[in-house]
Nucleic acid binder design. Structure first.
Lengths: 341, 341
DNA sequence: ATAAAAAATTTACGCGCGTAAATTTTGAGA
DNA sequence: TCTCAAAATTTACGCGCGTAAATTTTTTAT
C-alpha cells in the first residue's frame, strides 16, 4: 500500500530484498525456502500486494496447479454439493480448482475435456455422463491428463475410481423395506443415464431373492436428465395401470422418487409408513432436497464427505508422484429413515 | 493427424503456408483475415489439430476472452440454472466463461474476486451475496474489471444491473391471492440474505394496503443460506403459535416455501386451494424444484431466459466498447398457478 | 573452530505468443 | 492495364516468469 503498484516479480523481488529466482521458488512452494526468507517475502507481500501473473507462470511450468472438476449436471444439487466439497479440498491443498458441467450433453462433455486439456491441469476429477459419454474421448483424455473418475465408473480408465457401493446401497435399503412391511417394487428408468442404475437393479433383484420374494422391476420410459418429470409421468402411468404389486416402491434414485411422490400426490395417494397410507416410497442418494419432500423421503445417502475426500486424496497422491495401480473404491451409504417409508 | 504433433504457432503457420502473425490474427478473430486465408488455415487445422497455448495468448493480451460468472450459491438450483444459461451465452458469443460460487460465504466471495482479477477477464457477471458482501471489495473490483451485477443489486456499482422486478413479483402474486381467497400473510426471514427480500416485503405491504387489508409480516429467525430449514423451523413455530391470521401465506421465496410446506406436512396441515385444505402457500422465484413439491407450488417465476440474455448482452456490449450510462433493468415475472394456492 | 551441507544469488536463456512497423503482395474497380 | 487500398508478410521486440548452472553466502554438524 505504501508505494506504487508492483508490475512484476522482478520489481517485487527488489522491494523485498530477495532475488527473483528465490521469490519464484517461494510462489511455487512457500516451504521450499528458508523460514527467514519466507517471512521477509511475506512481509513485503503485506505492504505491496503483488500477485504473480498466472498466465506467465503456467506458460513455462510443465505442470500447472490447476485441477479440473467435471460433473454431468451442475444444476442437480447432488452434483453441486459434491463439486463444492471437492472444490474446497483442492483449495485447501493449494490447487486451483475449476468447475465444469457437461450439462447432460455428450458433445459438451467432449468440449469440456478439450478446454481442460488446453489448461494443462495437474489433475482432473471427472464424473462422466455415463451411458451417453464418448468413451473413446474419455480414454484419450485420461491418457493425456491424470484423471480420477468418480460417481460413475467407466471401465478401468484413469488413475482409479471412487464412488459409492451401489450394491450395498440397494441391498441395505431393500432389506430395510422387506423387514418393515411389504416387499418393494423397483422403480427405475428404462434407459438410465449411468451404470450405477444397473447395479442397483441387480442388487435389488438379488436382495429380493435372498428374502424369497419375487422381484418386480418397473422401468419407465424417458430420455435425458429430467428425472423428476420422468418419475412423475412414469409414476402416473404405473399407478393407473396398477403396476405396483405391493404397497412399497423403491426408486432407483431420489430424483425419480421426488417425481413419483408428486405423481402420488396428484393421484390422491397418501404416502408414508403410518396407518392410512396407501404407499411407501423410498429413494436412493441422500439428495440434498430429500429432507424437504412431503413426506420427507426415506433414502440411503452417499457419504458425501468420504467420497470427496477419498477422491481428492487419491488424485493429490497421484499428482505428487505416488504411483498406485488402478483401483476402484466404493464406499457404503447410510440409511436415512424418514416418513415416506 | 497425418504428420506429427504441432508444437507451436510457428510450426502451425509453416504447415498451413501462412505467416505466423496472420495466423495469430486469425485466432484472435477469424473474420479479420481474408476468406481465402481463413479457409487455408481451417484446412490445416483439420489435419493437424493444433490449439494455441492459452497461457501464452493471455499473457500479452491486455484483454483476455475470459468471462467470470459468480453466483452466491451454486448448490441452489436457481443459481445453477441461471449460471448454466449465462455460460452457454458466453460460449455462443465466443468467450470463455468460468464459473465461481461464493458458497454463501463473504470471505470466499472476496477470494473469488481476487482469483478473477488475476485472470484479467474481459468481463464479469456477478450475483453478489447481498447483505453479507464486503461492499468495499465489490466496489474496488468493479473499478478494475468490467462487471455487470445481476440478481441482487448493490448501489450503483459496475456497468449496470439486470434482475427481476421484485415489486412487480410480489404485487402480482399478492393480487392473485387476495382475489382468489383470504389475503395472505407474508412469511420471510428476519435477516434475509439479499435486498430483494426487503423489496418484496415492501411490495407486499403496499399491495395489501391497496386492497384495504391489514398486512401481516411473519419474520422468522435464522442465519445463512439453508432457507428450507429456516422455513421449516420457522413454519413450525408460526403454526404452533397461530401467527398466520388467515389461511393464506405468501413466502418471500420458494426455498422458504418449500420448508414451510414441510412444516405444514409435519403438522398435519393440508395445503392447497381445494375444499378441505387448511392453508394456501405460495412462493416466489419459480425455483426449478417448485413443480415437484406436494402440492406443487404456486409461485411467480423469474424470466430466466430474458434475465440471462439481457445481462449477457449488456456485458458483451460493454466489452465491445459501447459505453452506456449505469442502468438498472428489472424484468417482470410470470405467475405460475399450481395446486398450493 | 572448521568442514560440509543447504540455501540463496547471479547470470542467462527460453517459453509461445501479441503486436508494431515497414515492406511486399493481392485483388477489385476504373 | 493501371491504380490504390486492403491484406499478408517480414522483421523484430517484449511480456512475465520458469529454470538451469555456476557461484557465493549462510546454516548446521563435527
Amino acid at each position: 500500500m505504501t508505494s506504487q503498484k508492483i508490475r512484476n516479480m522482478e520489481e517485487f523481488a527488489r522491494v523485498s530484498g530477495i532475488s527473483r529466482p528465490t521469490v519464484s521458488k517461494y510462489f511455487n512452494d512457500p516451504t521450499s525456502v528458508r523460514a527467514s526468507t519466507r517471512s521477509r517475502i511475506e512481509a513485503a507481500l503485506e505492504k505491496h500486494e503483488y500477485r504473480p501473473n498466472i498466465y506467465a507462470m503456467n506458460q513455462n511450468r510443465k505442470l500447472t496447479k490447476n485441477i479440473g472438476i467435471v460433473v454431468p449436471l451442475l444444476s442437480d444439487p447432488y452434483f453441486a454439493e459434491i463439486a463444492r466439497n471437492l472444490e474446497q479440498r483442492c483449495l485447501a491443498a493449494g490447487y486451483r480448482p475449476t468447475l465444469f458441467s457437461s450439462h447432460g450433453n455428450a458433445a459438451l462433455e467432449v468440449e469440456v475435456l478439450d478446454t481442460l486439456r488446453a489448461m494443462k491441469p495437474a489433475g482432473v476429477l471427472l464424473a462422466p455422463l455415463g451411458r451417453a459419454s464418448d468413451d473413446r474421448s474419455l480414454e484419450r483424455f485420461c491418457d493425456d491428463v491424470p484423471t480420477l473418475i468418480f460417481d460413475s465408473s467407466v471401465e478401468e480408465i484413469g488413475l482409479g475410481f471412487v464412488g459409492s457401493d451401489n450394491f450395498q446401497f440397494t441391498s441395505h435399503i431393500t432389506d430395510y423395506l422387506c423387514r418393515t412391511g411389504e416387499p418393494p417394487s423397483f422403480f427405475e428408468m428404462k434407459t438410465p443415464a449411468n451404470p450405477n442404475a444397473h447395479r442397483r437393479r441387480q442388487s435389488y433383484v438379488a436382495a429380493m431373492e435372498r428374502f424369497g420374494f419375487e422381484p418386480e422391476v418397473i422401468s419407465v420410459a424417458g430420455e435425458g436428465w429430467g428425472f423428476e418429470e420422468i418419475g412423475r409421468l412414469g409414476g402416473h402411468e404405473a399407478i393407473q395401470k396398477r403396476r405396483f404389486s405391493t404397497n412399497t416402491v423403491l426408486c432407483s434414485n431420489d430424483r425419480l422418487a421426488i417425481g413419483l411422490l408428486t405423481a402420488c400426490y396428484e393421484q390422491g395417494l397418501k404416502v408414508g409408513r403410518e396407518e392410512g397410507c396407501a404407499i411407501r416410497v423410498a429413494g436412493q442418494d441422500g439428495h440434498p432436497h430429500s429432507r424437504y419432500t412431503c413426506p420427507p423421503l426415506t433414502t440411503i445417502s452417499h457419504n458425501y464427505d468420504a467420497v470427496s475426500q477419498t477422491a481428492a486424496d487419491a488424485l493429490f497422491a497421484a499428482i505428487e508422484g505416488k504411483v498406485t495401480p488402478w483401483k476402484s473404491i466404493r464406499l457404503e451409504g447410510r440409511l436415512i429413515l424418514r416418513d415416506s417409508a
